[in-house]
C-alpha cells in the first residue's frame, strides 16, 4: 500500500492531498493541467523534497516532513518506476541498453526477455532511439521501467502524446501487464476516458485539492460537484426544475442523453435539433430546449435526425448536483 499525505506549495496554490494506493491496484489522479497532479508524482518519486507530510510504501518510510522531523529517501533507493509523456529514453544508448539500464551487467535477464517479447520489442533491441516512433518509444520506456522491478509504477500522462490508436494499444498493453504482474500503479492523466479504462480508483484533483475519490463507474454516475462532473465528460448543467426534478442542477452527459421518449429510463424532454456533427467516430446532435438551454446527445449513424425538427430525448439517471 502506497500512502501519500502531502502539502506542497506551488506558485499559485498549495497541493494538499491524502491518498492511498492499494497493492496490485491502479489509482488514477485525474485533473486539468496545472492541478498539481505531477507535483504529487514528482515528490513521491523523490525528485523534489517533500515540504510537509508523509509518504510510505508498505510501512517503509519514503519521505517525511513534520516540524523538526525531516526524512528523504533518495530517489535511487525508492525502487519506484517513473514514466512520463516524454519518454526520457537515453539517446546515447540503443533500445537494448536502455531496457537493461537498471540490470546488473546491463544484460537482459529472463524476466526482461519476457517483457521484451510481451511488448513486441525483440526486433528493435539494437535500434537507435532516434529511429523509433512515439508508440515504440513508449513501449521501450515501459519495458525499461518494468525491468527495474519497481514496487510501484508512477505514470505521468504517459500516453497523452500518442495518437488515438497507439494510445489505446498502450492502454490495453498496460492493463494486460498490470494484471499479469500484479503491478501497483499511480497514474496521472487529464483524460477521463483513459482513467475510466485503466483505473480501479480515480481521485479527482483540482488546484491541489482532492475533490472526490471513487471507482470510475461511481464517478460517472455520482459526481460530487459540477467541477468533477465537467472532468468526467458532462457537458451541460441545467436547472433540475426544467425537468421537474426539484432543486439543483442536472448534469447532462452526451452519452447519457438518448434520442427518443423512454419514460421508464428517466426524465423525458423535447428540444429542437440545431446541428448534427461527427465526433470521435460517432454522431452528435446539438439540441436546444424551448427555455433556451443547450445540450448534446450522441446518436448512431442510422438515427434519422433533421436540423430544425423537434425531437424527444430521455435523460439516463442524470446526477443532480448542488447549484
Amino acid at each position: 500500500m502506497l500512502c501519500i499525505r502531502i502539502e506542497q506549495p506551488r506558485r499559485c496554490f498549495a497541493v494538499r492531498a491524502r491518498l492511498e494506493v492499494p497493492e496490485g491496484r491502479v489509482y488514477c489522479l485525474l485533473g486539468p493541467s496545472g492541478a498539481g497532479k505531477s507535483t504529487i508524482l514528482s515528490v513521491t518519486a523523490g525528485f523534489e523534497p517533500l515540504h510537509q507530510g508523509r509518504i510510505a510504501l508498505n510501512g517503509t518510510l519514503l519521505a517525511e516532513s513534520a516540524g523538526s522531523t525531516r526524512f528523504h529517501l533518495p530517489a535511487w533507493r525508492r525502487r519506484l518506476g517513473y514514466l512520463a509523456q516524454s519518454t526520457h529514453l537515453f539517446p546515447h544508448l540503443d533500445v537494448g541498453r536502455n531496457i537493461a539500464f537498471a540490470l546488473p551487467g546491463n544484460r537482459l535477464d529472463d524476466y526482461t526477455v519476457g517483457l521484451v517479447r510481451e511488448l513486441d520489442l525483440r526486433d528493435y533491441l539494437s535500434a537507435r532511439i532516434a529511429t523509433l516512433s512515439g508508440g515504440q518509444k513508449q513501449r521501450v520506456a515501459l519495458a525499461r521501467a518494468l525491468a527495474a522491478r519497481p514496487r510501484v509504477l508512477l505514470l505521468d500522462e504517459p500516453f497523452s502524446a500518442l495518437d488515438l490508436p497507439a494510445r489505446q494499444e498502450m492502454q490495453e498493453l498496460l492493463l494486460r501487464l498490470q494484471a499479469e504482474y500484479g503491478l501497483t500503479v499511480l497514474l496521472v492523466t487529464h483524460q477521463f476516458t483513459e482513467a475510466q479504462r485503466l483505473a480501479h480508483t480515480i481521485g479527482v484533483l483540482d488546484e491541489g485539492v482532492l475533490l472526490q475519490e471513487a471507482a470510475p463507474a461511481g464517478l460517472l454516475t455520482s459526481p460530487a460537484s459540477v467541477k468533477v462532473a465537467g472532468l468526467a465528460g458532462y457537458k451541460a448543467f441545467l436547472p433540475a426544475a426544467v425537468f421537474g426534478l426539484g432543486e439543483g442542477l442536472v448534469a447532462l452527459h452526451p452519452d447519457r442523453v438518448l434520442p427518443g421518449s423512454f419514460p421508464g429510463l428517466g426524465p423525458v424532454g423535447r428540444a429542437r435539433v440545431e446541428n448534427c456533427f461527427p465526433y470521435e467516430g460517432r454522431w452528435r446532435v446539438a439540441l436546444r430546449l424551448d427555455q433556451g438551454q443547450a445540450l448534446e446527445a450522441c446518436v448512431s449513424e442510422n438515427t434519422a435526425v433533421r436540423v430544425g425538427e423537434e425531437v424527444s430525448f430521455t435523460l439516463l439517471t442524470p446526477p443532480i448536483l448542488a447549484g
Binding site: 523523490g46 525528485f47 533518495p74 530517489a75 535511487w76 526520457h88 539500464f101 537498471a102 527495474a148 519497481p150
Partner: peptide
Amino acid sequence: HTSYSLGCP
C-alpha cells in the same frame, strides 16, 4: 531523474 528512478545513484 529517470536514471535515479532506475536505481542508479
